[in-house]
């Protein structure tokens, strides 16, 4: 579903991402760990085709994202660290609006259903987004991913700044989507969430994927040690 082949991004002499190779299949949740500037967001941005690779290839469903931007965009959903919505519109209107942008149209009841399934309290569905917390906005993002029926989910530190309850709800929603065969690539700082939710974990440092393994292969304590060892080296 998601494949990076020797994916490299340079800004002048600075290498933000160096020959990344990774693969995320349907039903996988691949968590990218690493300090700030490790290259996690660069990887996400390359798959989103927001930036072009210097060399290598980012592919979604075997299609190069720079060569097939329209086709690859259609199958993916994206939730950034801080999902920003139109503050003058309600949650439901935002969902309707962004679905409409992608050419998908739902009835009011269907939109309400999507938002409720994504954990947004009913009382907030028709309130303007300006009154939403960050967690509530992220839930609208999840609803949007559901509405798009995306087979690929790209998440850039989606639980950063969320309270534990909201983070947990978010993880449950990810697991639900995993069950539907969605391939998820998530950049995160949250080791616990990566171990708890992810199927695969990769550790990045200075633009290089220094370690990757299945989350079931390590305990949380081992993961923490491994992570800290890479960070301190």
């Amino acid at each position: 579903m998601l494949k990076a082949t020797n994916l490299t991004k340079k800004y002048g002499n600075f290498t933000a991402l160096n020959a990344l190779n990774l693969s995320v299949e349907g039903g996988d949740i691949f968590c990218l760990l690493g300090a700030n500037g490790a290259g996690k967001s660069t990887t996400i941005n390359l798959f989103l085709n927001f930036i072009e690779p210097t060399t290598g290839e980012a592919a979604i469903n075997s299609l190069n994202v720079t060569q097939y931007p329209g086709e690859t965009k259609q199958v993916l959903a994206y939730i950034p660290e801080n999902l920003m919505l139109y503050s003058n519109l309600t949650g439901l209107e935002n969902l309707d609006f962004f679905c409409g942008l992608g050419g998908k149209h739902y009835s009011r009841e269907q939109l309400e259903g999507l938002l409720e399934q994504s954990g947004l309290q009913k009382a907030f569905i028709h309130r303007r987004v300006s009154s939403y917390s960050k967690g509530m906005r992220q839930k609208v993002g999840i609803a949007l991913a559901r509405a798009r029926e995306a087979s690929v989910l790209l998440l850039d530190e989606p639980t950063s700044g969320l309270d534990p309850k909201a983070s947990n709800e978010f993880s449950e929603l990810l697991l639900e989507m995993k069950g539907k065969g969605v391939a998820t690539l998530m950049a995160t700082h949250d080791l616990f969430r990566a171990k708890d939710t992810g199927t695969h974990i990769g550790i990045m440092k200075e633009g290089v994927l220094v370690e990757q393994f299945k989350s079931g292969d390590v305990s949380f304590q081992d993961l923490e040690k491994l992570y800290l060892r890479h960070m301190h080296n």
């Binding site: 927001f50 965009k73 993916l76 959903a77 994206y78 962004f98 679905c99 942008l101």
Partner: peptide, 8 residues
């Protein structure tokens, strides 16, 4: 960013 991803 969301518009760019969502929009045709």
């Amino acid at each position: 960013r969301l518009v760019a991803i969502q929009s045709k």
